[in-house]
């Protein structure tokens, strides 16, 4: 369940503006390849909460999309539960950065997407209700996504993802665009959810604090082409905070340095 191995992953694309349409290759786009990342080798254990950290534009979202099967890698492969990923599947659900609830369906109907294979109506209804309650959206079942606040939309999407009972959950910048307090609240909820269901969760973020507070493992990506600068297991007990854990504070300073920013200005 949710064991992810990434082998020699590489992604490159051809810069459109530099495409050279010569006589030798009039139809095939040939030109200078732009390498996004290369030689990525990672191993995520079952049930881990992995935070992939890196500056924006470093290719971490592209990597997550490849792991989830939405994009093809140029080389290397991704193996989840001993199966090579060839495309998207409901075994691993992707939570998109921007609201991806189907706007023409209510909260109930959106959550139902993950459970629509169930034949037994009472079982299905019970399941939907359970996941809606898990994210505390009771009473909002019949609301359309546009009638919910940003935080509630994220929670509804989380419920939809969990309802599909995936082995693995991928989250791309799950807290972007939320106000500070909602961000903190969602962070707490995602950690609680993870401890409760115990599935592998891979989160892409540019927020160092999110990574340190939430992650069982952090992976730092940087550079152009990007490479894995650091991967470290964080064995700190929860609830975590910087005040009680000087090591965490130290690591935080190291990460700032690693990503090329000065925290104290």
């Amino acid at each position: 369940m949710g064991h992810i191995i990434i082998k020699n992953l590489q992604k490159e694309y051809i810069e459109r503006r530099k495409v050279n349409r010569s006589l030798e290759c009039p139809y095939v786009a040939c030109g200078e390849a732009n390498v996004v990342f290369e030689n990525i080798n990672l191993d995520f254990e079952e049930g881990e909460m992995v935070c992939i950290l890196g500056p924006s534009g470093c290719g971490k979202t592209t990597m997550l999309r490849i792991i989830a099967g939405f994009e093809k890698a140029s080389a290397g492969n991704v193996i989840i539960n001993e199966k090579t990923v060839t495309g998207p599947s409901s075994d691993h659900i992707f939570v998109f950065q921007h609201n991806a609830l189907l706007p023409w369906l209510t909260v109930w109907e959106n959550v139902e997407l993950g459970l629509r294979h169930l034949k037994d109506e009472t079982k299905k209804k019970g399941g939907i209700q359970e996941y809606i309650s898990m994210v505390e959206l009771d009473g909002f079942e019949d609301n359309y996504p546009y009638q919910l606040s940003g935080g509630m939309q994220r929670r509804a999407e989380l419920a939809r993802a969990l309802a599909a009972e995936p082995d693995t959950l991928f989250m791309d910048e799950p807290f972007s665009g939320l106000d500070f307090l909602t961000h903190m609240k969602m962070r707490e909820e995602v950690v609680n959810m993870h401890q409760y269901i115990g599935k592998t969760v891979v989160i892409v973020t540019h927020d160092i604090d999110d990574a340190l507070i939430m992650g069982d493992r952090i992976v730092v990506m940087n550079g152009r082409p990007a490479y894995i600068k650091l991967t470290r297991k964080l064995d700190y007990p929860r609830p975590r905070n910087y005040e009680n854990m000087p090591e965490l504070s130290e690591l935080r300073n190291d990460l700032f340095f690693m990503l090329g920013v000065n925290y104290a200005v």
Binding site: S90, I93, H98, L102, L105, L113
Partner: peptide, 27 residues
């Protein structure tokens, strides 16, 4: 396009893509 990604992620059949994504989306 994100809705088509969602459809692929939740293993929608071709018929479901038409009835649950395309028709309501274009309506």
């Amino acid at each position: 396009p994100v809705y088509f990604h969602v459809a692929a992620n939740f293993n929608f059949s071709r018929y479901e893509v038409v009835t649950k994504i395309i028709i309501p989306g274009m309506l």
